[in-house]
Design a binder for these strands. Sequence first.
DNA 1: TGGGATTTGTTCGTATGTATT
DNA 2: GAATACATACGAACAAATCCC
Lengths: 246, 246
Amino acid sequence: MPRHADAPLPAGARAQAVYRALRGAIIEQALRAGTKLPEDAIGERFGVSRTLVREALTRLAIEGLVEIVPNRGATVALPTLEEARDAFEVRRGLERLMMELLAGRLSPEQCANLRDHIALEDEARARGGPESIRLAGEFHLLLAQMTGNALLERYIDEVSSRCALILSVYGRPHSPECAISEHSQILAALENDDADRAAALMDAHLQAVAERAVLASAQAADIHTLLAPFAASEGLAPAPGRKPRP
Amino acid sequence: MPRHADAPLPAGARAQAVYRALRGAIIEQALRAGTKLPEDAIGERFGVSRTLVREALTRLAIEGLVEIVPNRGATVALPTLEEARDAFEVRRGLERLMMELLAGRLSPEQCANLRDHIALEDEARARGGPESIRLAGEFHLLLAQMTGNALLERYIDEVSSRCALILSVYGRPHSPECAISEHSQILAALENDDADRAAALMDAHLQAVAERAVLASAQAADIHTLLAPFAASEGLAPAPGRKPRP
DNA sequence: TGGGATTTGTTCGTATGTATT
DNA sequence: GAATACATACGAACAAATCCC
C-alpha cells in the first residue's frame, strides 16, 4: 500500500523503500539488465543521500539483481547463461520442497486465494501489460508464504526475481514467466494431496519456463523517467529543482 | 589466507573483512547469541569507521546471523524454535538437491579432498576444540562448491551458518554439528552413484542434527537459559520492569 | 598520453531516538 | 517523569579512483 510522500518514513525505512523501488523497477524491466545505476542520480530521484542508495544497492547486489564492481559502481546485473542454469536448478529444488510442504495442507481459503490470483494473472496476460511478469512470479511467492516457512519464502522470492531478470535477458521481451494452465494444474494436484504429482508438475513447469528462454536485447533510457512510478509507490519524493541531466 | 596488517586492503575490501571476521566469530561462538554489537566498539577493534561496520552488520542481518532493530542497533541473532525448524527444513531441501547433483559425478581428487576433510574433522573433534563446529559445517560447504552451482553454494553456506547459530543456542555447548561417521557414509553413497541413498542419508543426518539440538536443550536443565530465546522472541525481557507494548 | 570531470569510497559531525538514573 | 548519557540514522564533505575527451 502506497504512502503519501510528505509523511516522513520512520527511521531505517527509507533505505528499504529505495531497495523496494529499485527491485520493482528491475523485475518489471523498467530498469533493464546492464543499466548503470549511479548513486547520486538515484538519490536525487528518491530524495535521499547516497548513503541510503548505497545500502539499497548493496542489498540488491547480495540478492544478485545488481552487480557492484569496486570503484566502478553498480549496474543491473547481466546474468550469464551459467548463472541462469544455476538459478533454475536451485529454484527447482526449493519449489519441490515447497510442494511437499503444501500438498494436502491448503485450507479452502488459501485455495480460493490462489484461484483468485490465477484469475488476475489471466487478466493481466490478456491485456499484455508488464504486470503479468510480476503476477506470475507472485503466484510462486504466494505459495511460499503459505508454507509458513519464512526462510523458504525469502529464498523463493529471491530466486524468482533472479529468474525474472534472467528471462528479461534471455527470454522474449515482456513474455510472462509462467503459463497459466500450468499454475492451475499445480494447484489441483496440491488440493488433491498428491505431493509427487505436484512436485513433478512444478518441475516440468519450471523446466518449460527455463526452456522458453531464447533471445532478446535491451535498450537504455533516462533513469529519472524510468524510476518515477516506483518512487511514488514507495513514498519517496524526488529532490526539488533538479532536472534530468543537461 | 591472512594478510599482513600493514598492507592496506583495496577499496571495498575492508567492509568485507569486517563482515568475515564477525561472521567467523559468531559461528565459532566467540560472540554468543544475543550479544550486543555496537558500531563504535567494533569499528575501534578493527580500525575502521562506523560506516563500514554498518555495512558488515547489514549483510549479517540479511543472512540472519544478526538482528538489527531500528534506532537500537545490532545484536547476534537469537533464533526462535520456529526459525530453527524453518532453517533445517530448507536445509534438507537444498542438500537433497545437492546430493542429486553430486552423485556419481565426483572426481577422484574431489573424493580425496573430502576424505581429508573428514580426517580433519576427526582430529578437531578429538581435541574438542571449537573449530570442530566450523569444520563440520565446512564439509557441507565443500560439497556445495563441488556442484559448480554458485547460488546453491551461497544458500548452503548461509543456511549452514544459521544452523550453527541455532545449535549454539539450543544445542549442547561446543558440540560438533555433525557426526563424522555420517559424513563418511554420505561420501560413500555419492561415490557409489547412489543418489537416492545419498539423499536419504543426508536427510537422516540433518534430521539427527536437528533432533540432537532440541534434545540437548531439553536436558540442559537451567530454565533461565531455556526460556531466554522464547522471552526475547515475544518481546519480553528477563530483567524486571519493562512494559509489554506501547 | 594527460588532465579535467565524474563517480565512488570513507570518514566523521549532527540530529534524533532510546535506555538509564 | 525529566534529565542525562549514549548509540544510531543520515548526510555533507573530502579523498581516491575511474572515465572521457
